[in-house]
Simulated assay, not measured.
Amino acid sequence: MARPNKKAPSRTVEILCAQCKTRLFKYQKGGKGALVKCFKERIVTDHTQVPCHCPSCNQCFARETIVRGVPAFKIIGGKAIMK
């Protein structure tokens, strides 16, 4: 399968915890669809201490996986929102 584009998208979004609204990531998102996965190489700022867990409420919001040969976080439905 094709790898994600080398040139990072210009659109930057904030990823928040759906339960407590704490900032998790600042992420360069491509396209206008829903938030399904976050490629690790496109994360600009990471506010989490433990990967895939919210720093304030400790809820697991994603799973670490490999997507198209690149490390990524697969977002669990309804656990993280995009602003």
Rank of each mutant, 00 (worst) to 15 (best):
Q28D: 04
Y27C: 04
K32F: 15
T48Q: 06
F25N: 02
K29R: 09
K26E: 14
F39H: 03
T48L: 07
C20Y: 13
F39C: 01
L16T: 11
C52T: 15
T48C: 15
P51D: 09
Q19C: 11
C54I: 07
T45K: 12
L24P: 02
T22E: 06
K32V: 13
K21W: 13
E41S: 11
C17P: 01
C54Q: 05
H53T: 10
V44N: 00
P55S: 04
P51Q: 07
T48E: 08
A18F: 12
G33V: 08
K26Y: 04
V44Q: 04
P55T: 04
R23A: 14
Y27M: 03
R23K: 15
V50R: 09
C54E: 01
S56K: 07
V50H: 06
A34P: 00
P55C: 01
V50F: 01
Y27W: 12
C17V: 09
C20M: 08
T22I: 08
K40Y: 05
C17S: 06
S56D: 10
N58I: 14
Q19N: 13
V50N: 05
T22N: 00
K37R: 07
L35R: 05
L24C: 10
C17K: 04
K29C: 04
A18P: 00
Q28I: 01
L24T: 11
C20T: 13
R42G: 01
V50P: 00
G31D: 07
D46R: 03
F25G: 02
K21R: 15
C17T: 11
N58C: 10
T22C: 01
R42M: 05
C52D: 13
F25S: 05
C20H: 11
R23G: 12
G30I: 07
C57W: 12
C20W: 12
C17I: 09
N58Q: 14
K26R: 12
E41Q: 10
C38K: 02
K40T: 12
C57V: 14
H47A: 13
V44S: 01
